[in-house]
């Protein structure tokens, strides 16, 4: 065991603070002068800073490997969660078929065979394509796959899917969704095409989004970037945490200020029991948080703890009212 003095301990805390402060986008001379004053104040400070810096640079040198290792870990965790959830689903009697992998047979010789993959309400399913790429389909999603010698083409007619595309420079992977086409070579990204609104979120690699017809707006999205195209055609890119967008695969929905009506629309794709909102104004309440998809009643009970809503049973479903 290493025993370090309180002084060295404080120096390490301060060194970490300096390393973080110097990451500011607008770091300037005042930061530099203050940093120098601190650094040269004691030998402990210098040692601590050099130690933190060495580790910091190690993450630069091994960044890609560390990233890959972390991605593999979260995949394993997601798989573990799915298993537990399935068990819960079984016990609760809810019909959510959680993703057992389905392998799609290679396209037959000759022209590109078209295969249709689809999920029902409450069903999430992973498909593995002939080239090793995987597609996770969210509930109520329909897409068509056609592979030829020169390209791999998928039409996402309606719904949401996460694509994990194997690298093949000779055969680009193209996802046609609404008025846009998404073109990649090897990467991981989520495409959501619902009610005319399109969202593309990139976790890895580079993704190009262009209008299906020729047009001026071509986007080259990099990891962490997300493109939203509203039903009216308004476009916007921003940075997001891809893990959040991808979390539906592990049975969680993450929201940041989305309207309750949108959240309910998502829930209604996941559960047989349909939820209705009594009052449109209620539907506009912004929701921020994580929803674990166990069963609709529990979800609504948890939501009602945070929101001025209550649920009453209405026929086969639930009706949301103002509290």
């Amino acid at each position: 065991m290493t025993i370090i003095s309180a002084q060295a301990h404080r120096a390490m805390d301060e060194a970490a603070g300096w390393l973080a402060r110097l990451q500011r986008d607008d770091v300037a001379e005042a930061d530099g002068l203050a940093f120098e004053a601190w650094l040269t104040a004691s030998a402990d400070n210098k040692t601590a800073y050099r130690t933190a810096l060495a580790l910091w640079h190690e993450f630069d040198a091994a960044g890609a490997e560390v990233d890959a290792e972390l991605a593999a870990r979260s995949r394993r965790e997601a798989a573990g969660r799915t298993t537990r959830r399935q068990w819960m689903v079984g016990a609760g009697g809810f019909g959510i078929a959680a993703g057992l992998a389905v392998v799609v047979a290679p396209a037959l010789m000759g022209g590109p065979a078209i295969q249709t993959l689809a999920t029902r309400r409450g069903q999430r399913q992973r498909y593995t394509l002939a080239d090793g790429s995987t597609i996770d389909l969210n509930a109520e999603t329909r897409l068509r796959v056609s592979f030829s010698r020169s390209e791999r083409r998928v039409s996402l007619d309606d719904g949401e899917a996460i694509f994990d595309v194997t690298h093949d420079a000779a055969r680009p992977f193209i996802v046609a969704a609404g008025e846009r086409s998404v073109r990649v070579v090897g990467t991981q990204f989520d495409v959501r095409n619902r009610q005319g609104a399109l969202t593309v979120t990139v976790a890895r690699g580079k993704v190009e989004v262009r209008p299906a017809a020729s047009g001026p707006h071509v986007y080259a999205l990099t990891p962490g970037q997300r493109l939203d195209v509203s039903a009216a055609g308004a476009e916007r890119t921003r940075f997001v945490d891809p893990e959040e967008t991808f979390s539906w695969r592990a049975g969680r929905l993450v929201y940041r200020g989305e309207a309750l009506s949108d959240v309910v629309a998502d829930l209604n794709r996941q559960f047989p029991e349909q939820i209705e909102i009594a009052d449109p104004e209620l539907g506009r309440i912004p929701i921020t948080g994580v929803i674990v998809l166990d069963d609709p009643r529990s979800v609504i009970t948890r939501l009602s703890l945070m929101l001025p809503i209550r649920a009453v049973t209405s026929g086969p479903g639930l009706l949301l009212l103002r509290k």
Partner: peptide, 10 residues
Amino acid sequence: LFLAARTRSM
């Protein structure tokens, strides 16, 4: 050491 906080190596 100031510069190194933002570079990928010493």
